[in-house]
């Protein structure tokens, strides 16, 4: 590993100052499960900026009005162990509890998963269907970007030089709502998604009609995708409307534009986008019924 300096700022302002003073060749450290592995593979940085001394970056809190706030450096295990997440955001448990091993979950963060911006990242689809937003700090203050708009390509996000992700905000789930995430891997754990999908639904008070729905898919395009057509296909339809669910699956298959690689082919990934969309919708409806 090449030599670099290390700083652990105590505040957002201090981190912004350090980012502005640097020459841009800065590695931002949360859990390190991507960054440190990349440094070992030859990535060169001049400064490692550790976010974990910034209170907002490691906070995990919930407020009925503002929803869930997940500090960018909060570990996956802290998130899925949090009672509020277990009780009100099970789709976040789905994704954070299947990333890597326990060792990785104890270090790796949702913020890091976003900023590493792997097309196959497992947390973005769930955050997207939950209506999450990314709070970004920069020299001109903070700005918020919808989770689905955060990614611009493989390994690329809308973060500009001098900016960093502070936290992810997830609204309080509506009444009679549910969300679900799943992925396909050819083994039981410790793998990277061939494809993944998440869905959220809001049902009417009778829990028979879908009022609103969101579907997101991953590992099948350069970035995680919100499939607006899939959500639209479900809105206003009965929870057991097979044609509507099939239309949503078709929308996901149409939105997918995957590559073939060691994990799967284009054909398999397009097929999986439909299968996983169906299962995510069914899982979300089930959870909404139980809510």
């Amino acid at each position: 590993m090449n030599a670099f300096d290390y700083e652990a700022p105590q505040s957002v302002d201090e981190a912004i100052s350090l980012l502005s003073a640097g020459n841009g060749n800065i590695g931002i450290l949360a859990g390190g499960t991507d960054l440190i592995a990349q440094l070992k593979e030859g990535r060169k940085i001049d400064l490692m900026l550790d976010l974990k001394q910034i209170p907002e970056a490691t906070a995990l809190s919930f407020d009925e009005d503002s929803g869930l706030s997940i500090g960018a450096a909060t570990s996956c295990s802290k998130i899925y162990s949090y009672d509020v997440v277990k009780n009100h955001y099970p789709a976040l448990v789905d994704c954070t509890s299947l990333i890597g091993s326990i060792q990785i979950q104890n270090r790796g963060s949702v913020g890091g998963n976003f900023c590493n911006a792997s097309p196959a990242a497992d947390t973005p689809p769930a955050v997207i269907v939950l209506g999450g937003t990314c709070r970004i700090a920069g020299p001109n203050g903070t700005r918020e970007v919808a989770a689905e708009d955060f990614f611009s390509g493989p390994g690329q996000s809308v973060l500009q030089s001098g900016e960093f992700l502070i936290s992810i905000q997830v609204p309080t789930p509506a009444a009679n709502s549910g969300a679900f995430f799943l992925r396909f891997i050819p083994r039981n754990e410790m793998d990277i998604a061939v494809a993944n999908a998440a869905a959220s639904v809001v049902l009417d008070s009778e829990k028979t009609t879908i009022q609103e729905a969101r579907v997101a898919i991953g590992a099948v395009a350069p970035t995680p995708l919100l499939v607006a057509d899939a959500g639209a296909a479900l809105a206003g339809k009965a929870v057991d409307d097979e044609d509507a669910i099939e239309a949503a699956c078709a929308a996901s298959r149409a939105a997918a534009r995957p590559i073939s690689d060691m994990r799967g082919t284009i054909e398999q990934r397009i097929h999986l986008s439909g299968v996983l969309t169906r299962r995510a919708i069914q899982g979300a409806i089930q959870r909404a019924k139980e809510s």
Binding site: T33, S75, I104
Partner: peptide, 29 residues
């Protein structure tokens, strides 16, 4: 493996098991 796959370097940090190959020494403060 030195890249977080094998767990041979597991240690506990504040009771949580982690791969010590993926934590910097300075983070031990």
């Amino acid at each position: 493996c030195s890249n977080g796959n094998c767990g041979a370097c597991s240690i506990l940090v504040d009771g949580n098991v982690i791969d010590s190959c993926l934590m910097m020494g300075v983070e031990a403060e």
